[in-house]
Design a protein around this nucleic acid. Structure first.
Lengths: 335, 335
DNA sequence: CGGACTTTCTGCATCGTTGTAAATATTTCA
DNA sequence: TGAAATATTTACAACGATGCAGAAAGTCCG
């Protein structure tokens, strides 16, 4: 049915291995005339190499896997797009899978079997548990992305959560906010992104001589727009003096903006808001979302470089890289 | 290095085939005692099946590919998430790839070689050209998704663009809009989603006894938030009498909302807006985005069912399914 | 003219898994 | 008890591509 190398070999009257040599452009292994004859047959029969067979034989397919918690968060979409572009520069291809939200096996995508399908795997660890990741034992290189504490034996590219949160909160204070909320904060698991950002939020207030409100941490069941919206609406009804909100992610910030509006308050006149991630859409909200930009391009470039190194087989100790972050001031905070 | 079936066989003192029989749970092919012995060895050695080898051997991996134009559009993220959930019901796994926006070969993801990696492929055809898709010649089942005219020999699940646009535009008129714009419209390629939605927009006006403005079609270089925002801002400066805008997608509608705001006008008092797609975020914009809901779940279920049929080898003529759409009225249109 | 090279090409074994058919062990029943 | 039937287990050959060692064929030089 499908055309194999054998068909091409037969059609051009050479051996299997010669076809392989032509296809892979091995230098000086096949005469010019033969090469042309083979290429003609390839063209004529419409032969294309079987990546599955190739991988079984020599272990590489040129495909890198990216495993994200869920497909439908803009953050991961943007991450995937950037990574795909960066990896394309070295001729690699990106394939994205989802780890969570699947019916039965939450971690099916993390199984050794699935990972072994790729030349390397980028694992977005948001929401994954340390132990789940620690179990991973594979010969395929794995690079971790994201803001959780994770086993040190993996390469890991992340950002400075505490510093970013400090920056965000400091900005709110500088622009006059005095009654601060962190939405999506909490401290379960000192290692979590949430806890680190909460620490930054607290420290920024101490540094400015403010005492964080005891009820300042608004925990969310999920870091989701709808959750955040409802929680903020209800909270503002109880404590209307709130005038500055740090949302732990932009996605949450979108919900916060809606919630503030629901409560009949204005942004930024009554309540100022800062998010975290610099999602593309934030710029086009009304008003534009002030946020923390975690140097996405930097992170993506580092991650891709690590991938290249590991695939090339370089045996250096695990790298742990931390990206610089900076503030992008827009309309949800005052001038 | 890696543990193979052979290792398990040796460790439990049985043949290779017996291990295979145990792993695949072939009924009545292996004695209880032996089964337990093998399973023990599997557990102890941490054996996991090599999907690459399995695929080479019997052609199936349980993985379905979804090819989207780009990763960073929320529409595709939501689509992927829904599909993943639906496919999980039959034990299949979804892997997402990007067709466009890659450096060299725009269509690398569409190559036979890559497609042959999956049990079946869902191809989101937005932005793809008829001819590119028509070239596809493969034994892997392909199901098309999306709103373009495409070769009839493929299964295709789409929605009624013209009817949806008619519904959206009719709603604007019913709520009092008289000077209508379609943002992202156009008529290049009668087959395109854009052209179909533009027809619906025109027809709804004729049906209501209105004459579409000759300058009513605002074409965009890309169906992007930023493009739409700038175009709308400039257009409203020229023709401030515009009081109703149909945005061809929600993504465009987000840009329209920002553009209207930039122009110093209010939504919905001065300008009413309707989008198309019912993206999750639309509900949480301020005001909430009125939009057309294309019955995503219906589409996803049909697509998954088609996949199942085709993988099972059912040889029925290509199916062409059209999803019903309905209006979701929210804050960007008046009461 | 013959050995030492080079160039070009080939056969074989292999990656890890599974279908087939046949071999061996076990049970059943006359 | 022995033949027939059933239950387990096995060897072998694929799937398609490629690394390796080496075979032909051609080239060079003393």
């Amino acid at each position: 049915m499908t055309i194999t190398m054998r068909d091409v070999a037969r059609a051009s009257g050479v051996s299997l291995m010669t076809v392989s040599n032509v296809i892979n452009g091995r230098p000086g292994a096949v005469g010019t005339e033969t090469r042309l004859r083979v290429l003609e047959a390839v063209e004529r029969l419409g032969y294309e190499v079987n990546l599955t067979a190739r991988r079984l034989r020599n272990g590489l397919t040129g495909t890198v896997g990216l495993i994200v918690p869920r497909f439908d968060h803009p953050y991961f979409g943007e991450l995937a797009a950037r990574l795909a572009t960066e990896l394309a520069k070295t001729g690699r291809h990106l394939s994205v899978e989802q780890s969570g939200a699947s019916a039965e096996g939450e971690l099916a995508a993390l199984s050794h079997a699935r990972i072994a399908t790729y030349d390397a795997v980028l694992l977005s660890v948001v929401g994954l548990h340390y132990d789940d990741v620690d179990k991973l034992q594979t010969s395929v290189p794995i690079v971790l992305l994201g803001e959780q504490g994770m086993p040190r034996r993996f390469d890991h590219v992340q950002l400075d959560n505490e510093a970013g949160a400090h920056l965000a909160t400091g900005h709110l204070i500088e622009r006059g906010a005095r009654h601060l909320l962190i939405v999506g904060g909490g401290d379960e698991g000192r290692q979590s992104m949430t806890a680190a950002r909460t620490r930054g939020w607290e420290r920024a207030q101490s540094d400015a001589g403010l005492t964080p409100r005891p009820d300042g941490v608004l925990e969310l069941a999920e870091l989701e727009v709808a959750c955040a919206r409802i929680a903020v609406r209800e909270r503002l009804a109880q404590t209307p003096e709130i005038d500055g909100i740090f949302a732990v992610t932009d996605q949450v910030a979108f919900g916060v903006m809606a919630g503030v509006h629901d409560a009949g308050l204005r942004v930024p006149e009554d309540v100022q808001i800062v998010g975290f991630d610099n999602l593309a859409l934030g710029e086009h909200m009304t008003p534009g979302l002030t946020t923390i930009d975690p140097s996405h391009d930097w992170m993506v470039q580092r991650a891709a470089a690590l991938i290249d190194q590991r695939i090339a087989g370089q045996d250096v100790p695990p790298q742990h890289l931390i990206s610089p972050s900076m503030l992008v001031a827009r309309g949800t905070t005052r001038e």
